[in-house]
């Protein structure tokens, strides 16, 4: 996928997008399989990792964040990480994470 980068000023070729879409579809299939196959203790981390991978793939490729100016990434990720930090702190006061 790396040769894709310099190829086009404005992001990737259509074929590149289709390839990304197929990868995303594969990860979704894997995610759904966790419902049928028992992953044991690996269940939660696997799901989280797959979610984050899909999230970042769509954001950086489909939304061009990887090819655009840095200020867009700063703005978006600032909002995202602020949301994660604040709501995680709030949920922890509800004794959400304690076993």
């Amino acid at each position: 996928m790396t040769e894709q980068h310099a190829h086009e000023e404005h992001g990737m070729s259509n074929a590149g997008y289709v390839r990304i879409a197929l990868i995303l579809a594969a990860i979704t299939a894997l995610e759904v399989s966790t419902y049928y196959v028992d992953f044991g203790p690996l269940f939660m981390p696997a799901l989280m990792v797959m979610m984050v991978v899909k999230f970042t793939m769509v954001v950086s490729y489909f939304m061009h964040l990887k090819f655009d100016k840095r200020v867009f990434s700063v703005m978006f990720y600032a909002g995202l990480f602020l949301a994660i930090f604040v709501y995680a702190a709030a949920l922890s006061t509800f004794k959400f994470f304690i076993a």
Partner: peptide
Amino acid sequence: IKLGMWLFLGSECLLFGGLISTYML
């Protein structure tokens, strides 16, 4: 307009984050 759109999406993270944490609770 693109900078405006990304700022708007950044703030939407907070909105959906709030709804998701209400659901998780």
